[in-house]
Amino acid sequence: MRLSILTSTITLAAAFVATSLMADGHLSLAGKRIGVAVVGTQHFWDREAFNGATSTVEKLGGEVVPVDGGRDNQVHADNHDVLLANKVDAVISILGDGAVEPKFEALKNAGIPVFTVDHPSPHGVNNTTSDNYYMGTTIGRYMADAIGGEGKVAVFNAFEGALRICGIRAGLWKYVLQDYPNIEIVQPELAEEFANAPEDARKKTLDLLSQYPEGTLDAIHVGCWDQPAIGVVQALEEAGRSDILVTALDGGPDTLEIMAEDGSPFVANVAQQPNLIGSTSAMNVARHFAGEKLLPQTYVDVYPVNGQAEAKAAYKSLGYGTLD
């Protein structure tokens, strides 16, 4: 039943996007050079958001000037200087930390409108992002349910203070847990690395497991994304620990595959649509040039994934293929 609801919601959403695309048939970026800055292309999410943005700019007749930060926030920020020097007509900037803010300001001052993805900024025209509020609360409820409403939880939470989207997701996860007085968040929180996250999280989880012997830890949650969860699951397997559940956010194909395995400790996730997010941002650039007034934030739907069956269904519905 739930599966068919998920499938039909996604179909409906796809139909909606298709109609809005048709309705936006007048939109064009012909003759425009659009800079697309992405923090990295190693991870599925980043790459898909980038692909969605660049392919849509091209579909609308624009020329893409791409720059890739190689998963280094400093390089990503510096790349905006290159776009400024190239005098592009607009910039789509995907992710990035506080280092990009002065760059956005410089672009704005030079008359180049900035459209952000997953990075709300006072210097941007519009930010296109997932419904992070829903993601945070949903994963909080799912995790609390999965451990029976009580127990100890460790969290990988390096970016709550650095990236607004992570502030929302991790903050609302904690907000939900306030209503579960018997769930305790292990202190200090863990901090994953931005680059090379799975391997880094694997090591940190192994350290954590040596501090918390069998039966003393109930779940490990990744507060803002799911790449570290790959390493967390690996560490649990290596240590032969089946007493700990894993939850995370993003729902890329790599983690949905892990969730779909029999007896997987990875039990809940919320899947985003990064390609649609990138594409929507590019549409917003065209809308801006067509003289439409944009809202500061455009939200793209997310899909909660609770358990193995839903992981398989979401994998199929999101067009990643089939898992059996």
Binding site: D72, N73, Q74, A77, D78, D97, A99, E101, E193, A195
Partner: peptide
């Protein structure tokens, strides 16, 4: 340059 300290610089 980074308007702050970022890991990995």
């Amino acid at each position: 340059r980074g308007s702050g300290s970022s890991p990995g610089t």
